[in-house]
């Protein structure tokens, strides 16, 4: 069964703030973690509520983001969306780790982050 991941992005990094995200990457991977396809979406508004709404309507299974307020974290968790938050580093690297189930909340992908 395939899984849909969403990463909040800012330049080539995971966006520092969920509520201020203006762009996201939506990736679909199969049960083995192999990427099926991905797309970048520029959001029409910068709003945590709208982003939560999009996550639910798009049927996202996992969200990878930077800082997120408790309210939205709890809401998404309650809606059975896995949230890997406080991630720092390039979003492609975060995606690679998430695909193989190795991305943890609070992960700091230092080497790539310092190349910024």
């Amino acid at each position: 069964m395939s899984e849909k991941l969403l990463i909040t992005i800012w330049r080539d990094q995971v966006a520092p703030r969920f509520d201020l995200t203006s762009e996201v990457l939506v990736a679909t991977v199969d049960s083995t973690g192999e990427p099926l396809h991905s797309k970048t979406v520029v959001l029409p508004t910068v709003s945590a509520e709208d982003l939560c709404h999009m996550i639910l309507t798009e049927g996202i299974n996992t969200v990878i983001c930077g800082g997120i307020e408790e309210e939205y974290f709890e809401y998404l968790s309650w809606k059975k969306v896995k949230v890997i938050d406080s991630v720092i580093g390039p979003y492609l690297q975060a995606l690679e780790l998430a695909r193989v189930g190795k991305l943890e909340p609070g992960a700091i992908l230092r080497e790539e982050a310092s190349q910024g």
Binding site: Q13, R17, A113
Partner: peptide
């Protein structure tokens, strides 16, 4: 130890950063 060397916007996460 975690924060040194990282872009401040990822650590301070101020709404003005971006």
């Amino acid at each position: 130890e975690e924060a040194i060397g990282i872009d401040c916007s990822h650590i301070i996460r101020n709404n003005l950063c971006t």
